[in-house]
């Protein structure tokens, strides 16, 4: 399912003194099966854009095409549930959405809202709780007795159990430990690869953007300022810093090496293996 934003503008509290334009004139397309990273400095409108992807917000001008549905500014929309079933959102700090007595019930909540039978929902809960790296026993516990990291995983499992076609992630790993972060991202990436799940990822981590995304969209002060492959984007460190962003660790390391060695590699490398290969080639096979 493709999702396409067309000249989307959104003002919070439109028509009141608190009116605030959060994004304007943002257009981009996420094709089926793609992984798109949305990056930008804090307050640049990333979360606002994400809310448009399953019609939780309606643009104040412009339109959003989600599969065969179009959500247009100024038009009343009915029956948005099918959209929400196809596009699952994991919010920033999703642990806040837990409410049931047990983890099991909480994970079943989403699927059952979309008409999945209780039995099937329970099966899914058992499956997804393992996928997010927790054990099955936790299903009987109260979500409020869990640690922050565990709550986060449960909340993510709750969204995944809806088995959406498109997965939208708003900084899903913020506040997790480094290993949990890696595990989580790898799990998402595996879903993306194995199930051809379309993925849209908001992140502050340039490494994640470089590692996982097919395409990166950069927002700056509510406007889209760049769209392209990670390789394209990260070769221009100067422009990135103008937008309050940095380059991945590897690229910085590459620049340091280049400065030390006194010569340049032909292009930037986005992983340490690529860098090693490229560098040994340059120094004529004598690896460093």
């Amino acid at each position: 399912m493709d999702i396409s934003l067309q000249e989307v503008e959104y003002r919070y509290a439109a028509g009141s003194p608190f009116e605030k334009k959060a994004v304007e004139n943002v257009s981009f397309t996420v094709s089926s099966g793609e992984c798109v990273a949305v990056i930008g400095h804090t307050g640049s409108g990333k979360s606002t854009i994400l809310l448009h992807l399953n019609a939780l917000l309606k643009p104040t001008s412009g339109s959003v095409v989600i599969g065969d549905r179009t959500v247009k500014a100024g038009r009343k929309e009915k029956d948005l549930k099918p959209i929400r079933q196809k596009v699952g959102i994991v919010f920033q700090f999703p642990e806040q959405q837990l409410f049931e007595e047990t983890v099991l019930k909480d994970i079943c909540y989403g699927p059952m809202n979309f008409g999945v039978s209780e039995e099937e929902a329970k099966c899914r809960a058992v499956y997804w709780i393992k996928q997010v790296g927790l054990s099955e026993e936790i299903l009987q516990e109260s979500p409020f007795d869990l640690s922050g990291g565990q709550m986060r995983r449960v909340a993510i499992a709750g969204v995944l159990a809806m088995e959406p076609e498109v997965l939208v992630l708003d900084e899903p790993t913020a506040g997790l430990d480094p290993r949990g972060r890696k595990e989580m991202m790898n799990m998402f990436f595996r879903l993306h690869k194995e199930r051809k799940m379309t993925m849209i990822l908001v992140t502050h981590s340039m490494e994640d953007a470089a590692d996982y995304a097919d395409k990166v969209v950069v927002l700056h002060k509510g406007k889209k300022v760049h769209e392209g492959t990670p390789r394209e984007l990260f070769s221009d460190a100067e422009r990135l810093s103008e937008w309050g962003l940095g380059v991945p660790e590897v690229v910085r390391f590459q620049r340091m090496l280049e400065a030390k060695a006194g010569r340049k590699l032909p292009g930037i490398c986005l992983s340490i293996e690529e860098l090693a290969a490229s560098f040994s080639e340059l120094s004529g096979g004598k690896a460093t």
Binding site: L51, K81, R84, P94, Q96, M162
Partner: peptide, 16 residues
Amino acid sequence: DETDKIMKAQMARGSD
């Protein structure tokens, strides 16, 4: 603000 946020999160999970 929080009400708004949680409402959106639950709506995304199909609550109506």
